[in-house]
């Protein structure tokens, strides 16, 4: 009973406290770098698209707002033929970033992306792709993957031996 009254009294006293609200458009809040805002697609350090169209971001998306189609160039490098995020559905949960095995998809501290028309919130690959590597400047998926692409033959990735000579009988 006393605690009930005490609780009421404490709440009442909050009347005289400083308000915590930041009046946003006039005052800009501090946004940490790992903030989960607008999604981008980054590039490898050598400038090629990082996304290999593995579909994991789409699979993990709880609101199913990512759609893409995989394709590959003549040398076997995979990339998305199209990559679409419907931001009018996105809940910025960041699962796609966690699922991404190549650090291609990243969430950025930009959240000011309101539109008056919903169709404007549908971002295609050209809208998503940035020109740098984003948060992980040194990672290059194809340098650790076994797949051969243009400019990287079999056995040339990190921590790989040269291709096996299957005709050799040496032990």
């Amino acid at each position: 009973m006393v605690s009930l009254l005490k609780a009421m009294w404490i709440i009442f006293l909050h009347m005289f406290r400083k308000r915590e609200t930041i009046l946003y458009p006039e005052q800009k809040p501090y946004i940490p770098p790992r903030w989960r805002g607008r999604i981008i697609l980054s590039r490898d350090p050598d400038g090629a698209e990082r996304c290999v169209a593995c579909y994991l971001c789409a699979a993990v998306c709880p609101v199913d707002c990512i759609a893409l189609q995989a394709t590959q160039d003549e040398y076997g490098r995979r990339y998305p033929e199209f990559f679409r995020i419907n931001f009018s559905r996105c809940i910025f949960c960041g699962f796609c970033e966690e699922a991404c095995p190549t650090y291609a998809i990243q969430l950025t501290p930009d959240f000011e992306m309101c539109e008056y028309k919903r169709p404007n919130l549908v971002y295609e690959k050209e809208d998503l792709l940035i020109s740098g590597p984003g948060k992980y400047p040194d990672y290059n998926f194809y340098h650790v993957a076994g797949l051969a692409i243009k400019g990287k033959e079999k056995g040339e990735a990190e921590n790989e031996t040269p291709p096996v000579d299957i005709r050799s009988l040496l032990p």
């Binding site: 789409a58 699979a59 199913d64 707002c65 990512i66 679409r84 419907n86 559905r89 919903r118 549908v122």
Partner: peptide
């Protein structure tokens, strides 16, 4: 049950 892209596949036509 893990079909993806339901809300994005046709979003470029209509949201």
């Amino acid at each position: 049950h893990r079909y993806s892209g339901r809300t994005a596949v046709t979003a470029y036509v209509s949201v």
